[in-house]
Amino acid sequence: MEFLLAKYNYWFYILIMMVGFYAMISKNNLVKKMIGVSIFQAAIILFYVSIGAKRGATIPIIEHGHDAVHHIDPTAYINPLPHVLMLTAIVVSVSTLGVALALISKIYAKYGTIEEDEINEQLTDV
């Protein structure tokens, strides 16, 4: 029980990620697939941000920074690096989503549907 509680963020990130992963693989609707992708990437972001957490620490903005005399205690501030990385990952996931939606919009214009099986039917008919 102790073991389960000590890592609970990580158990939940896997749960969320697998929901997204399943949607990505199995959903028939292209927009739902993209929703799955977004959930998957959000889970990765949750995972990284969890790495950055530190018990008893605050946000990584150094207080009274410009006095520069006092000693800075690194255990008082959370790890900034995962947050930086995730800022990048968020931007990447938004960009991918934008391009994917553009593709879906073109697919809809061409086939008149965004259901994968209906598109495949149209493709095999030709």
Binding site: M24, L103, I107, L123
Partner: peptide
């Protein structure tokens, strides 16, 4: 079929990169 096959590539490529 470029659009639909690119979309499949996008999904798989995103899985790979993720």
């Amino acid at each position: 079929r470029a659009l639909i096959s690119t979309f499949n590539y996008l999904i798989l490529g995103t899985i790979g990169a993720s």
